[in-house]
Amino acid sequence: MDAKDWLLLRILEEDSTQELSEVADLTDLTEAEVEDRVSAMEDDRIIRGYCASIDWEKAGEGVAAATVNLKVTPERDFGYDRIAERIARFPQVSSLRLISGEYDFEIRVTGRNIQDITRFVSEQIAPMEQIRETGTILVMKSYKENGRILYDRKEGERLLFSF
């Protein structure tokens, strides 16, 4: 992957709905080159898909979120992979990461309310044989998700800066 591919990926990650001509201008590539590179990265599964960033509160639907940290017992011959694959299949799990430190996994869980999340963790995650401990942290408010700022600033409003 060269520098232009890296830049192309960053641009698409920021906003994959941009016109091909805009992306070409930003990368100093032709539209055909952008199209070919994107197609090749989709074929190679570097680009896994495209998604919308949704403000569920503005959409009129409440959504609750939590980070759940897990201590697990790795499986012989499979390590963490099989338990991760099992957890990843739940639609309530929006992200799953193997982490270092006190816990082994960090999962991001969403539900319609806090009760949905607590029920999911206590009835689906905690009873799994490999799960030794869970630690749930409720998300009170999100300011940035997947590289996108979630709050609106008024036109011309500047952030304060001081030393």
Rank of each mutant, 00 (worst) to 15 (best):
K141N: 13
G79M: 12
M41A: 10
V72Y: 06
Q115Y: 09
M41W: 05
R153C: 09
I46V: 11
Y50D: 00
D5C: 11
L26C: 07
L20Y: 05
L70I: 04
E35F: 04
G79K: 12
G101A: 03
L159Q: 08
T17K: 03
E61L: 13
E102S: 01
R82E: 10
R158P: 05
I11K: 07
T27V: 13
A24M: 03
V93E: 01
G49I: 13
D15W: 05
D55V: 04
F78E: 09
R86S: 10
G62C: 03
E13H: 15
D15V: 13
D15A: 07
T17G: 08
I149W: 02
I99W: 11
L160P: 00
L12A: 07
A32Y: 07
T73G: 00
G79Q: 08
L20N: 12
N69R: 15
V109M: 07
A64D: 06
S95N: 11
I107K: 02
R86N: 08
R148T: 15
D43P: 02
E13S: 14
T73K: 13
W56C: 02
I83Y: 07
W6Y: 13
P74W: 09
L96W: 11
D43R: 10
Q130I: 01
Q124K: 04
R132N: 15
G111A: 09
I54R: 03
F105Q: 06
E155R: 14
E22I: 12
E157M: 09
Y103P: 04
I131N: 05
N146I: 00
D28I: 00
D77A: 09
T136K: 02
L12P: 08
A24V: 08
D55L: 04
L26A: 15
A65W: 01
T67D: 12
E19S: 12
A40K: 11
E157Y: 13
P127K: 02
V34E: 01
L8N: 02
C51D: 10
I149S: 09
R45H: 08
A126I: 06
P91N: 04
W56Y: 12
V34I: 07
S39C: 06
G156K: 01
V139S: 04
A64F: 03
T118Q: 12
E31P: 04
D43Y: 01
N113C: 06
D2Y: 03
C51Q: 08
V93L: 10
L29T: 05
V109Q: 03
D2G: 15
I149Q: 08
S162C: 03
E42I: 15
T30F: 00
D44C: 08
G135E: 14
I54D: 06
R76Q: 13
E57W: 06
T27K: 07
A24N: 05
S53R: 05
L98Y: 14
D2C: 05
G101C: 04
L98G: 04
V121M: 02
K4R: 15
I125F: 04
T136Q: 04
L26M: 15
L7N: 14
R10N: 15
E35S: 14
F105G: 11
